[in-house]
């Protein structure tokens, strides 16, 4: 019995090795993917011809007017302008939510207008700020969910060059005293979606609130994330990308790598270092050093999948 298990493990590991971007390989090479605030977007040029890269932006908070950044549209514009300067064009972009600050039509309009400047397909998931319209997310679904053929409150999946991408919603129907929540309907859908997928298929799962508990006192986690992690356990390479906390955090657990991106609008304090997770005011000249985007490069070959965070300005 034990022998059977180990042979399955070996086979699984070998399957994963076909895709070098596997979490298995990551843990073998020492775990945490490289992250640097000062690396430029140019890192994408190292991308092998066989692979592709995509860009993650998050928490643009268009409509925010407070001291931490009175003009988040300008910093979003800076982030989008960097895309044009990248040596290799990303295949597409994901936006991990809080596009707007208050779900107002003009906030969504402004964000979309600037983001369109990147000339990339954008796959969105909502943040809690994107579903506070009167219809509680109806406007978001019309604008961003429909073109993804999203289900429920806006979840969906798509494939790109053999990688399976899943966009989840963990900001709707939140329960008193809880953190982020996916809900039974979404987990049932995900169970069905992953059924029949080969364990060697690399998975990229993205959602607004972290899918691991970063800091429960501030609600920085997702109550039912463990059910998702159980579903993806058999996969050799799982990358989980989130936003919400406006700072870079990462963790590797077996074959699963968790990573949160910076905001393009304003930073938030490190867990427990302030009375609340509210916007952090930094000196104006430092602001662009603590905002940024994340580029994820997926390669077929024998190098690890790379997650590179880039600030809007060198710190």
């Amino acid at each position: 019995m034990a022998q059977d298990n180990s042979s399955i493990d070996r086979r699984r590991t070998l399957e994963c090795m076909v895709w070098a971007g596997s979490g298995v390989l990551w843990t073998l090479v020492g775990g945490v993917p490289q992250t640097s605030a000062v690396l430029g977007m140019g890192t994408a040029r190292a991308q092998a011809a066989m692979g592709f890269s995509f860009l993650q932006i998050s928490d643009s908070h268009i409509g925010f007017k407070q001291a931490a950044n009175p003009n988040p549209l300008a910093t979003l514009q800076d982030a989008i302008s960097q895309v044009g300067g990248m040596a290799t064009k990303p295949a597409f972009m994901i936006h991990t939510g809080d596009i707007s600050h208050l779900s107002k039509p003009e906030e969504f309009d402004d964000a979309e207008k600037v983001i369109a400047g990147a000339r990339l397909d954008v796959h969105y998931v909502p943040g809690e700020h994107d579903i506070v319209d009167e219809g509680r997310g109806a406007d978001y679904l019309n604008r961003f969910g429909r073109k993804q053929k999203a289900q429920g409150t806006g979840w969906y999946a798509f494939d790109h060059e053999g990688v399976h991408f899943v966009g989840l919603v963990n900001v709707a129907d939140l329960k008193a005293g809880g953190m982020g929540s996916l809900g039974a309907a979404q987990i049932a859908w995900l169970t069905e979606d992953l059924k029949g997928k080969s364990a060697s298929t690399p998975l990229v799962i993205f959602a607004h609130i972290p899918l691991w508990t970063v800091y429960a006192d501030w609600g920085w986690g997702t109550d039912d994330a463990a059910q998702v992690l159980a579903l993806v356990k058999r996969f050799g390479s799982v990358t989980v990308l989130n936003g919400h906390i406006h700072q870079i955090m990462q963790k590797v657990e077996g074959a699963v790598t968790f990573h949160t991106a910076r905001s393009t609008a304003f930073p938030q304090p490190a867990p427990g270092t302030a009375p609340s997770p509210g916007p952090l005011k930094v000196a104006d000249e430092r602001l662009r050093g603590v905002l940024g985007t994340t580029s994820i490069t997926v390669r077929r070959g024998n190098e690890p999948l790379a997650i590179i965070d880039s600030a809007l300005m060198k710190a």
Partner: peptide, 27 residues
Amino acid sequence: ALDTTDTFRFTFATPGTYDYFCGLHPH
């Protein structure tokens, strides 16, 4: 959603205990 400095008023006409939370930050 109450933006900075916004207020929300509600008249509690009926006796009882009303538990509530923030719909954006349920903790």
